[in-house]
Design a protein around this nucleic acid. Sequence first.
DNA 1: TGCCAGGAGAAGT
DNA 2: ACTTCTCCTGGC
Length: 291
Amino acid sequence: MNIIEKENGIILEEVADFDPKHIFECGQCFRWRAEEDGSYTGVAMGKVINVKREGNDVIIDNTTKEDYENIWRDYFDMDTDYGKIKSTLKEFDEYLDKAVDFGWGIRILRQDSWEMLISFIISSNNRIPMIQRAIENLSERYGKLIGEYRGKKYYAFPTPEELNKATQEEIRECKTGFRDKYIKSTCKSVVELGLDVKNFRKLSTEDCCKELKKFNGVGPKVCDCIALFGMQKIDTFPVDVWVKRVMQEFYIEEDMSLPKMRKFALEKFGDIAGYAQQYLFYYARELGIGK
DNA sequence: TGCCAGGAGAAGT
DNA sequence: ACTTCTCCTGGC
């Protein structure tokens, strides 16, 4: 892969396994929006960038080669060989084979641990557009202004200290609904105990989950999402409604409980279960499987 | 207008 | 270890 600098951005030449639509719409992130030209603009790691694919090239606008090396290379998980993961998954069965071909450009973003903790607390019993709106509201009110891009103002996700300044009522005003108390309680714990949740990455998957579930509003599913998307724990398998539907369609009986479904998938896919979950989720949601 | 989707937590068995 | 109920919002 060759990196070329352009006016206010960079071009990554000949990038394999990278498609913005697949990456930003496979249920892992909430701050990316599709533009009319098919590109995506979003906020991550305190910056605003725009990402699009042209042929085999990926164009990242509003950034520098330096930021790519320091931030985006890690964020987009560029040092992981998705070709290898995909061929392993395709070997499993005809369903994975189809799901991987369908979401060929998916990558699991290495997102901020703290942002994922709060984002997935908001996700509980909630729909994606509502989750996106609540996160935007919290960022606008409590996060730092990053600046303007294409005529729109963008705000960073608030730090624990910034968000902890909000009262439960103020958090609710951001359209978080009944999760207001979970967010308040989690902010309070993190700030008062002086925790840096990013350090949970160093723990084993099991211990990491144990720690995450201590926070109010973090149950089994939310915990799996934070571990997978915010802690890079690939041996997890979050079972949401779409994954449940696709599992019932392809692998298991209707009446299997969620914990058993999770166990089944972990045993089947092993330490790449998290990748399998992403391809299956995207496939199920885009095609409306099991609805 | 009423009804539905979407998970955690609490209280029950 | 399981089941059941409530929590809130927006869209149909």
